[in-house]
C-alpha cells in the first residue's frame, strides 16, 4: 500500500496509527479513539483481513459495533450489533438486515506490527 499522503494537513485524510496488532482480539473487534470519533477495528483472523467501521450503530445510535460478533454471509464479512443483532457489511457498510441505514467504512493497513486506519 502506498503511504504518500502529506502528514500535516488537518482536514485531509491520512493513515492514523491506531494500535499494535496484538492489541486486537482474534476474530473480533476493539474500539479506537480518533479525536472525538470512535472507530470499530476488527481483525478477522480466519480470513487474514482487517476492517474499520464507525463504532456507532445507526439503529439506536449506540457506541457498540466494536463489541459485536463478526462473521460472514455468503462470504461477505459482516458484524452483528450487540443490541438488536442488526448486521452490517464490513466491506460496504450496507445494513444486511433490510434496513435503510448504512455505516461508514475505512481502509486499514498493517505495517511493522502497527495497525493504521485511513481517516
Amino acid at each position: 500500500m502506498n503511504n504518500a499522503e502529506p502528514v500535516c494537513a488537518i482536514e485531509r485524510k491520512n493513515w492514523f496509527q491506531a494500535c499494535r496488532v496484538e492489541d486486537v482480539v482474534h476474530n473480533g473487534g476493539v474500539c479506537v479513539k480518533y479525536g472525538e470519533q470512535q472507530i470499530a477495528l476488527f481483525h478477522f483472523t480466519r480470513r487474514k483481513e482487517w476492517f474499520a467501521i464507525q463504532n456507532e450503530c445507526p439503529h439506536k445510535m449506540q457506541m457498540a459495533l466494536s463489541r459485536g460478533m463478526i462473521g460472514t454471509q455468503q462470504d461477505e464479512p459482516k458484524v452483528a450489533c450487540p443490541f438488536h443483532k442488526k448486521t452490517f457489511s464490513l466491506v460496504t457498510g450496507q445494513c444486511l438486515s433490510g434496513d435503510e441505514c448504512a455505516i461508514e467504512t475505512y481502509p486499514v493497513k498493517v505495517e511493522n506490527g502497527h495497525v493504521y486506519i485511513f481517516i
Binding site: 482480539v25 482474534h26 476474530n27 473480533g28 478477522f44 480466519r46 480470513r47 460478533m69 463478526i70 462473521g71 460472514t72 454471509q73 462470504d75 464479512p77 459482516k78 452483528a80 443483532k85 448486521t87
Partner: peptide, 30 residues
C-alpha cells in the same frame, strides 16, 4: 466459511455444556 452470529453462540454453548471450561479461553471469547 467463517461462522456468524447464528452459529457461534450455539456452538460455544455446546462446548460449555460439554466441557465446562472457562468460556473466554482457547480463542472462544469472540
Amino acid at each position: 466459511g467463517d461462522g456468524c452470529e447464528l452459529c457461534k453462540p450455539p456452538v460455544s454453548s455446546i462446548l460449555a455444556s460439554l466441557w465446562n471450561e472457562m468460556i473466554l479461553k482457547k480463542g472462544n471469547d469472540t
